[in-house]
Amino acid sequence: MKRFLILMFTSVMIFSLTSCNFATKTYKIELIVKGSSMEFWKNLSKGAQSAALTNHAEIQMDGPEEEKDPADQLRYIEKAIQEKPDAIILAASDYNRMVKPVENAVNAGIPVIMVDSDVNSKKTLAYVGTDNIMLGSKLAQSLESRVKTGGKVAVISFVQDSYPAVQREKGFRDTMARYSRFQLLKTQYGGSDNAISEKLTAALLKSEPDLVAIAALNEPSAAGAAQALSKSGRKNVRVFAVDCMPTEAMYMEQGVVDIALLQNPYQMGYYSVETAVKALNGQRVEDVYTDIYTVDKSNLFDKLYQQLIFPFSN
């Protein structure tokens, strides 16, 4: 009798336990970008949304509209901390100034994953994005292989203390140092703005008659540089760009822009969310470096690249 009772009790217990397999939790993840109106960040967000769909997560994108002032991002981080999401994915607008807010978030118990632009802190879980030193180095290599004559090379960067800008420039300059036929000019900062970059380039074109190439370290820089170059009508200078959008693509078709190194913002968005969910599920996470593609006039309309260069208009 006693054994029968115990048997029945256990079976009821097991039954009730197995019947409460609760559905998996949906994580809330805050994605803070550098310029929410920019195509690059929109694409990154799309990648993040796709990952959210398959990984039981909910993404909320936020951040300043434009990348001009790094301090703008502070209040978005503070706001995110207040809202207590499960995780924050952040593209830091400044390598050093964002350390404190990031560490505040971590201390508040919110894990932080860095995407595209890293921050000077060891408290973040992982970095997902382009290996920017390698990107800079690749840019230098293709410049060297395509510009056979020597001469001056201008560098148009975007925001001075932005970590990707720093690293790309470092990679670029370190590799360029190997090629003695080029002289690098002082870096100009276009603030991720077409018009400013265009103005800077126009001034350079005037003051530097020996200029043979312009290295533009992000898309607005490249577009601005190409525009100025196209207007000036100089044929002996070519732009080597990082990232490419339709305007720049047109200049590439016209031969103003020689090559563009494409980053993959979809991958960044996708893998950052995947990494965040992995971390939230208690798995070990590592840095993820996303793909870099070299595009020129000949392969601009390849299936893989046209999607990155010409986003669907909504």
Binding site: T54, Y270, K303, L304, F312
Partner: peptide, 13 residues
């Protein structure tokens, strides 16, 4: 719906 992802080299499972 994730066309861009597929072109970007991420295929849905």
């Amino acid at each position: 719906p994730m066309q861009q992802m597929i072109y970007a080299g991420i295929q849905p499972k």
